[in-house]
């Protein structure tokens, strides 16, 4: 069954380009197009798409707020953010709103297709360019502040779990994959957040992206 997609962007040219790209894929179909944030929330409610490709800067409610509302109404929908900003505040807020993927508007189309597929499967996906820029920023920031790399504090098992969680897997998935108990996974997760001085899963994902652990 094809991945049902909602495109949300206030520029018709961009939507047309995206539609052309998506419709070339045999496993994808565009079910609706929205031209502003409020519209995208309404259409997502009507069509219950698998994936929403969402622009951030839109009139009548920005893409991040729209993402939050769409996911509040239907958590099974996955949102991929499409933006021209590679600043971490955009990435982190997208993640906090619950977005699975973050793409830049100058991304390769293969990135776009892959991001939609990953999101449909419940995995995180970030454009390599975003990862690279965030990594560079992070390294520069660490050097400037003279802070030691906290990643060194993590055990091998914790790094493994960090990567799986950052990729978007649930605790249950991780437990099954590593063949350990759910409690163990939860304990590891708590340790990871403590060691890295992080407070939420979105921050953890951002961290993983900055470290180049996922892309």
């Amino acid at each position: 069954m094809a991945i049902r997609i909602l495109l949300a962007d206030d520029h018709t040219v961009v939507r047309d380009g995206l539609r052309a790209l998506v419709e070339k894929q045999p496993d994808m179909a565009v079910v609706a197009e929205a031209s502003d944030g409020r519209d995208s929330v309404r259409l997502a409610g009507e069509h219950a798409p698998d994936v929403v490709v969402m622009d951030i800067a839109m009139p009548n409610m920005n893409g991040i707020e729209a993402t939050r509302r769409i996911l509040a109404a239907n958590p099974r929908t996955a949102v991929v953010i499409l933006s021209m900003h590679h600043d971490e505040s955009y990435v982190l807020r997208s993640l906090k709103a619950g977005a699975k993927g973050y793409l830049l508007k100058d991304s390769l189309r293969s990135d776009m297709v892959e991001a939609i597929r990953a999101a449909a499967q419940g995995r995180s996906y970030f454009t390599r360019k975003v990862s690279r820029i965030l990594q560079e920023d992070y390294v520069r920031e660490m050097e400037r502040r003279g802070v030691d790399d906290t990643y060194e504090l993590l055990t091998d098992r914790e790094r493994e779990i960090l990567q799986l969680v950052a990729e978007g897997r649930t605790n249950k998935d991780v437990a099954a994959l590593l063949n350990v108990s759910l409690t163990t996974v939860e304990t590891h997760r708590t340790h990871i957040l403590q060691k890295l001085d992080l407070h939420s899963v979105p921050e953890l994902i951002l961290y993983a992206v900055r470290k180049g652990i996922i892309s």
Binding site: I56, A57, N62, I64, H85, D87, S89, Y90, R93
Partner: peptide, 14 residues
């Protein structure tokens, strides 16, 4: 755009 999209503090951080 952060000033409009997210508010003052994110814009200042940016």
């Amino acid at each position: 755009s952060m000033l409009d999209d997210f508010g003052l503090v994110p814009a200042l951080n940016w």
